[in-house]
């Protein structure tokens, strides 16, 4: 008798109760002056995700006692890191940033995009860069052997990541529009090696959908002040999904909804400023 495979387009997730129990609150990013950041994570034994982001502008004001930071020091841009977990395996699905620095009369910028620890793109900022790809990030599996019954689950986490960058570096100002983003979704196939029975999981789960667009223009600091034009936003959408298990039991079919979770979204303007900043 040939093993029967389950048609399964399914998403990783545990029971609804667990998801609800582990669901994150939509944490409010914190801003300290023109720097905004946030970090949050959530997980249960089957699935999880976490993220951090940073966006804004730093100047000499943030490092007043450190002589290695010149009076003209600037750092501006946005960066995100996100990790996803499936079946107990966690991977850093994205590490992306677009940052411009100015220190002691020298300016430079860098764009960096890594997925699952592999740097895909790492370059100086010179021109506009729209970098975005859709890929399967990583796979994980469960091999359950219980009282002589085998169930195989193959999970995949895939989605899109990238960073859009429009820079401008002149002798009088720095300007950067940068939007790092990551979207990750989990999906599962199941095999129970069954002759007349099968199980499939149908549904979908959004693991993470994070965008951090930043638009910053700043003149080089003079006399402990500089003019800025800055808009920092973010949007976050996490952990929604509906999960239904279908059991095909020889001639009978039964189904049961395990998860019906709305997740949460958050977003908005973190910081908006135009005018002069002084210290």
């Amino acid at each position: 008798m040939q093993p029967k495979l389950l048609p399964a387009l399914a998403l990783l997730t545990p029971l609804a109760a667990l998801l609800v129990a582990s669901s994150p609150a939509a944490a409010a990013p914190s801003c300290s002056g023109p720097v905004c950041q946030d970090a949050a994570g959530w997980s249960d034994s089957g699935f999880g995700a976490s993220y951090t982001f940073w966006t804004g502008l730093q100047s000499k004001k943030n490092f007043q006692t450190d002589p290695s930071y010149g009076a003209d020091y600037l750092k501006l841009g946005a960066e995100i890191q996100a990790t996803a977990k499936a079946f107990g395996v966690s991977k850093p699905i994205v590490d992306a940033y677009a940052l411009i620095y100015n220190n002691n009369g020298e300016s430079w910028g860098g764009v960096h995009v890594a997925a699952v620890g592999v740097v895909l793109y790492s370059a100086s900022i010179t021109n506009a860069i729209p970098f975005g790809v859709s890929r399967t990030f990583f796979k994980a599996d469960e091999d359950i052997s219980l009282l002589g019954v085998h169930i195989d689950l193959d999970g995949k986490v895939g989605g899109e990541l990238g960073v859009d960058v429009i820079p401008s570096i002149t002798s009088s100002y720095l300007s950067l529009m940068a939007e790092p983003y990551a979207r990750a979704y989990a999906d599962v196939d199941a095999d129970v090696g069954a002759a007349c029975a099968s199980v499939s999981v149908k549904g979908s789960l959004t693991a993470l959908d994070l965008h951090v667009p930043a638009a910053i223009t700043v003149t080089y600091p003079e006399d402990d002040s500089m003019s800025v034009l800055m808009s920092l936003d973010y949007s976050l959408h996490s952990l929604d999904g509906k999960l239904k298990v279908e059991l095909e039991y020889c001639l009978d079919t039964d189904s049961k909804t395990l998860v019906n979770f709305d997740g949460f979204t958050a977003g908005g303007q973190l910081f908006s400023k135009w005018g002069t900043i002084s210290w």
């Binding site: 667990l18 089957g46 169930i151 689950l153 199941a190 199980v199």
Partner: peptide
């Protein structure tokens, strides 16, 4: 008489058995 179950939730919920 034996009972087993997955000690963590899986994508398809609890897998449990009795022998």
């Amino acid at each position: 008489h034996e009972r087993s179950r997955t000690s963590r939730k899986t994508a398809i919920g609890d897998v449990a058995g009795e022998l």
